[in-house]
Amino acid sequence: MKKVLGILILLIVVCIVTAISNENFFSAYNMQNVIRLTSLFGIISIGVAFVIISGGIDLSIGSVICLVGSLLPFLLVEKGFSITTALLLVSTISIAIGLFHGLLITKLKLQPFVVTLCGLLIYRGIARGITQDETQGFGTTYAGLRYLAIGKIDLPFIEGFKLPVPFLIMLGLALVAAFFLNKTIFGRYLKAIGNNEVAARYSGIKTDRVVIMAYVICSFLAGVGGVLFALDINSVQPEGIGNFYELYAIAAAVLGGCSIRGGEGSILGVIIGAALMRVLRNSITMLGIPSQLEFAIIGVVILIGVITDELVKSYAQKRRALQQAKQTSG
């Protein structure tokens, strides 16, 4: 909890500042939008958090989203697959991609950065090739399926505000992820490997399996994200969908306390990180800041967050070391 406190405060501050300048920020419509998008980005950020905690990185997320997001409407609409078959197929593809990454990284000892960078190029290329770069969509059909991404649920007692369905999906996935990370030996091993893979191996941990699992989780959640993004926007352009999403996801994970050196991270932190990313974008519109500055502002805020975090951490460590010294000499 302590670790996510800083970013939570930052999120609240940004919300308050925006709300003061523009009363529409807290309107039901805007909140529903922010929450829906936070949920979609939260899902892919949880995935990459697993990889980052293992000490790796995944740059291919945006392209996995593109591949899955283009294939789903392509299979359903153009090829006439049933919903079950199509979903099963895209899930299998995303899991296979993670398995492929994990095997290359553990068995061939390739660098995660390089493997997933190649993935970034390959999967988008495949998607654009299959679809001939044509925009894919569901039109007015598949309303039931699209409910997963754009559906809203009435909440008792709160007038006007409806809870976006993706929020529930994210909540479920986040709970499972947090459970995995904190309560199971898989999570324990993952953190151990992220901190010191050699010592983990010397303790009898099959480190390869754990690392492969992390990449599979990451790609699978990117696939889930791809399905939901496609259902959300309805007109999928293979050239553009998911561009830079890996960077948003990584930024959210890092903001949420995942060390890029591996070994630590919390799911709650990652969700708050994803929320901060979305709220920032929203605030820029709400505050009337020229949208050309969007990236610059997001970059600066993230940098400030990370710097503050590092300073607080090194201060705490110094104090702790000093206390230790006192204890042993006293």
Binding site: K183, T184, I185, F186, R188, K191, A192, N195, N196, V198, A199, A200, Y202, S203, G204, I205, G263, E264
Partner: peptide, 28 residues
């Protein structure tokens, strides 16, 4: 090779035996 320096005494102590002692579903 011996320790996960960033982890707690407890987590280091159980690193080898945690899998033997696991509960169903791999719960620690």
């Amino acid at each position: 090779q011996g320790l996960i320096l960033e982890m707690a005494v407890r987590e280091n102590m159980s690193l080898a035996s945690v899998s033997r002692d696991q509960k169903p579903l791999g719960i620690i």
